[in-house]
């Protein structure tokens, strides 16, 4: 399990990274924490001609308070959030959930941006940040653009990122003090990728109540207005959920069941 040979570049400016991508975006694979890409390289499931390591770019490690949101650089690690190096604007939600991602060794290196770009439906951030209404800020020599996460992820392991684009930062709306949230993931063992994810975020201050079902074969299933989905005691409209799952192509009763339960648990947590 050793990777095939590849070239390796590690620029320290975002512009240089964009130049390299413009020059050969298709043959280049961006790497940050390498917690998913590393094993895939070793298994020779991917054989890029060149690895573009973006971890030396200071601009990708910044955290910026943008008023009603926080903008975090793509190379912020899960541990940065877990340990509080990213100021908490979500009532402890991100900090707590970051601490449940995989194992500490993975969290030390794995990055939020890398997780989103890898777009594994079973990953935590994909579902969590979709539920929070986060946006991806993409950069290329052609300029910047901002894409809502639900549009950024096109499918399992598939994103809207063009060959010459790099994920620069993620803009995550803050939660008010009155916001309530719930998160449940079904794993057979600690640290494993989830088999089902449910997220509920309800912020009366902003009027936003969003629910996400994750760890499907598709992008996270978002219910942008989940007020009708969730009743006051935290139970969810099972028929509605099953319809959504069916529309997403999920036919297996066991899979449907564990996804429904994950959402119910998230809903119950949010209503506690």
């Amino acid at each position: 399990m050793k990777p095939a040979a590849f070239d390796y570049v590690r620029p320290d400016r975002l512009e240089d990274a964009a130049d390299l991508l413009a020059e050969d975006g298709v043959g280049t694979k961006i790497v940050s924490g390498a917690q998913s890409l590393g094993p895939m390289l070793n298994l020779r499931l991917v054989r890029p001609g060149r690895l573009l390591d973006v971890t030396a770019i200071p601009a990708l490690r910044t955290v910026e308070d943008a008023g009603d949101a926080v903008v975090i650089g793509a190379c912020i690690t899960h541990a940065d959030i877990e340990d509080g190096r990213v100021p908490d604007a979500w009532g402890g939600m991100l900090r707590q959930l970051a601490s449940g991602i995989a194992y500490r060794a993975v969290r030390n290196r794995g990055t939020v941006g890398g997780s989103l770009c890898h777009a594994d439906p079973a990953a935590d951030w994909l579902s969590i940040l979709t539920a929070l209404g986060a946006e991806a800020r993409l950069y290329s020599r052609r300029g910047r653009r901002t894409v809502a996460l639900e549009s950024f992820v096109l499918g399992a392991f598939e994103t809207a990122l063009a060959a010459d684009e790099i994920l620069e930062a993620v803009r995550i709306p803050k939660l008010s003090g009155r916001a309530r949230w719930g998160y449940s993931k079904s794993c057979r063992k600690a640290g494993e990728f989830a088999h089902a994810i449910g997220v509920v975020v309800d912020d009366p201050e902003t009027g936003r109540c969003r629910a996400v079902i994750g760890a499907t074969e598709t992008p996270p299933i978002l219910v942008a207005d989940a007020r009708g989905l969730l009743s006051g005691d935290g139970t969810v409209q099972a028929d509605w959920v099953l319809r959504l799952l069916g529309e997403a192509g999920m036919q297996d009763p066991f899979e449907q069941q564990i996804h429904l339960v994950a959402l119910e648990r998230a809903g119950a947590q949010a209503r506690l």
Binding site: P39, L43, K189, A190, G191, E192
Partner: peptide, 14 residues
């Protein structure tokens, strides 16, 4: 199963 992501071994938590 060709990796320990597919072949589940109990860890200390389990």
């Amino acid at each position: 199963a060709s990796t320990l992501a597919d072949y589940l071994l109990p860890g200390s938590v389990e």
